[in-house]
Simulated scan of single mutants.
Amino acid sequence: MTALGFLYPGHSAEDDYPRIEQLLGSDIRVDLVHTDIGEDAHRVDALLEMGSAWLAAGVQELRHAGADAVVWACTSGSFVYGRDGAQEQVRALAQTAGMPASSTSFAFAHAVQELGARRVAIGATYPDDVAQLFAEFLRADGVEVVSVKSSGIITAAEVGTWGEAELLALARHSDHPDAEALLLPDTALHTAAHIPTLEKELGKPVLTANQVTVWEALRLADRRVNAPELGALFTREPIVQA
């Protein structure tokens, strides 16, 4: 049994995780611990606060549950620190947890590399200034960002109410003909049930926050799972060639 641990801020799209667990197979367990979101706002100051206050809460619970790896399941609460700050955040988490650790921001960077994609587009629910910080984070990791579209939504609570229609609209609006993959970077967004539909609609890989977060935990635990219902990232062969 491989146990994957996640620190998830607040309550928005956490039901993506048991759904993903069902698609991965019976020998993988997903353990989710909620952290205090503080002020629910996609503002830089609120995100910096959320990203600094979560560390101790929940880590011991995941250790006692026997997690093999832990991921901070928050994109904006990691990339807002910049690449170096996000790396220090992960380093501190690993030290505290006593196990391999990462965050959703690094999960995106690693997933893009896994697919062999060189150019990506971003479809963010965040305000534009926050969305641009995610683009900067990816560029610092060597990813070419060809387009950034933002929806200007302030709260995770509002994002959590979006269904398939809003998700598809975001994807269509955010795609770019030069992009080899589309990234949707908000763990408050329900996506686990819709990834095949998104990829069929766009004709390219789509990376979503909760999807890449679980994939990153599997990578840290040295597990590789073939789960086509979770999109191109979870097939055994990359469909984009470098």
Rank of each mutant, 00 (worst) to 15 (best):
G142I: 08
S26R: 14
M1R: 13
A57V: 06
E229T: 14
A227S: 15
A107C: 11
Q132C: 12
G82D: 04
R43F: 12
A97K: 03
L189D: 05
L62S: 09
V206T: 08
L189P: 04
G25M: 13
T96H: 11
V225M: 10
D31K: 06
S174V: 01
W72G: 02
L182D: 00
V90H: 03
Q95M: 07
P238N: 12
L198S: 05
E164T: 00
A124V: 09
V130M: 09
S52H: 12
V225K: 07
M1N: 11
R219M: 14
D175Y: 02
F134S: 07
P205Q: 08
L184Q: 02
F234H: 15
A221P: 08
A192G: 02
A73G: 07
T104P: 10
S12Q: 02
A135M: 08
E49F: 05
L115T: 10
L167K: 01
V145G: 09
A157H: 02
L32A: 00
L115Y: 14
S174D: 01
F234A: 09
A46I: 07
A217K: 08
L47I: 10
W54G: 05
A94R: 07
A242Q: 15
P205D: 07
P127T: 14
S52Y: 07
A41G: 07
K149P: 00
P196S: 06
V112E: 12
S12A: 15
T125D: 12
A221V: 11
D27M: 06
F108D: 11
A165P: 00
R63V: 13
A46V: 09
K149Q: 03
G25C: 14
P196W: 10
P238I: 14
A109D: 13
E88P: 00
A192W: 01
E164C: 00
V120S: 12
A92W: 03
G98Q: 13
A69W: 10
A117T: 14
D31N: 09
W54T: 08
R83M: 10
A57N: 09
T187Q: 02
A67E: 09
G142S: 08
T187H: 01
L233R: 09
H110A: 15
A117E: 12
R43K: 10
H194D: 08
N226Y: 13
T191A: 05
W162P: 01
Q22C: 04
V145S: 03
L233V: 15
L207G: 11
G58Y: 09
I37K: 01
V130C: 11
A3D: 06
D45T: 05
Q211A: 07
L183P: 01
F106M: 11
E39N: 03
W215I: 10
L93Y: 07
L115F: 14
I122C: 12
S76Q: 08
A56L: 13
F106I: 11
L170Q: 04
W72P: 00
L47G: 09
T208S: 15
L62E: 11
A69Q: 05
V143M: 04
R29T: 14
A86M: 04
A131D: 12
I37A: 05
G25S: 12
E199R: 04
L168M: 08
L218P: 05
